[in-house]
Amino acid sequence: MPLESAIEVSNLTKYYGDLCAVDHVNFEVKKGEIFGFLGPNGAGKTTTIRMLTGISIPTEGTANIMGYDIQRHPIKAKEQMGIVPDVSNVYNELSAWDNLIFTGKLYDMPKTSRESRAEELLKMFGLYERRKEKVQGFSRGMKRRICIAMALMNRSGILFLDEPTSGLDVQSVLIIRDLIRNLNQQGLTIFLTTHNIDEASQMCDRVAIINHGKIVAIDTPEKLKRTLESLQSIEVAFETAPPNALKELEKLAEVSEVVKEGDKFRFFTRDPPTVLDSLWKYSQDNNLKLTTVNTVGPSLEDVFVKLTGIRPATAEEESGKSGRSEEQEMVHRRRKQ
C-alpha cells in the first residue's frame, strides 16, 4: 500500500532544562500538501522544525519522514528532505555555483547530475549569469533564492521552509510564493512555518496553530474560520459619523463588539442580518448616510488571535514591510473579503 503521509509526528516533545518548548505535539502531513505551521514568536515552530530535520534531538516522541524515523534512520530520512531555514545559511565565501555543487556533494550526487541540476536551478532562479560571483555580494532576496535552490538540489519529496519570506522585499516575496506553489504543483510536499497569517491563508492546504508548545488547532484555513462563527462581522462607513457613534452603536441588538477601524466601524456578531436591520434603523433615525456596508467572515488572523490571545503583525504593518502599494493593498483586502 503506498505511503500517504509525508510526515508523521507523534508525541514530539522538547525540554530545555525545565522549560517545555514543544509539548507532546501530534500531527500528520499528507503527501503533496502545503502544510502551514503557524504560531507567534517563541511558540515552538522552529524547535519543531529543528527536530523534524535532525538538527535537534527530541526529548520524547517520534517523527517519521516518508516512513523513516528521523532518530532511527536519520540518513534515509534526511535524503527525503530539503531545508530552507529562517536564516539564509549560504556559504558567503563561495560562489553561487560552488554553493550548489557543495550541496550536491553533501547528498553524494554524481558529478554530472549535480552539475546539470545546479545549472537547471540557477537558470530557474535567474542567477545563472551570476553563478561565478561570491554569494557575499548578493542581496538578501538573491541569497534566499540560492538557499532554496540548495534545498532543491537533491530532488527531495519534502521541502521544509522556515519563514521563507520573512524580511524580503515584495518582489522576492512574490517570486518565492509563486515558486512554492509551482513546486507543490509538481508534487513536492511543503512544510511551511510562518507567523504571517496572510501567507498561511493564501498558500496552505492545512494549517496547524501552535502556541506555548502545544497545537491548539489543525485544519484547513476555511474550516478554521468557520469554527469561529461568533467572529462574523459587518463593516460599515457613514458619510459623516456623529462623535458619540461608537457608544451608541455598541447598544445595538446582537452586537458583541464594535471596533472603529479608520473611518469604518466593524461590528462583531453571531447574527449579521439582525445587526444590519438595526444599523439601517439607526442610520434612518439619525439621518446618517451609509457609504459602505460589507459583511466579513472571520479571517485566519481572527482564529489565530482567538486561539493564541496574541495579535500578530497587522496587514498594514505587513504591507509596510513588504512595500505593497495602497492600490495593491486594496486589491489584497478585497480578495481577503
Binding site: 538538527i55 536519520p74 528532505m81 545559511n89 553533501l106
Partner: peptide, 14 residues
Amino acid sequence: ANQTFDRFLTSPVS
C-alpha cells in the same frame, strides 16, 4: 554563527 553547521546536520551524513 552563520547557521551553516546546521546544513551538515540536516544532510544525509553522520
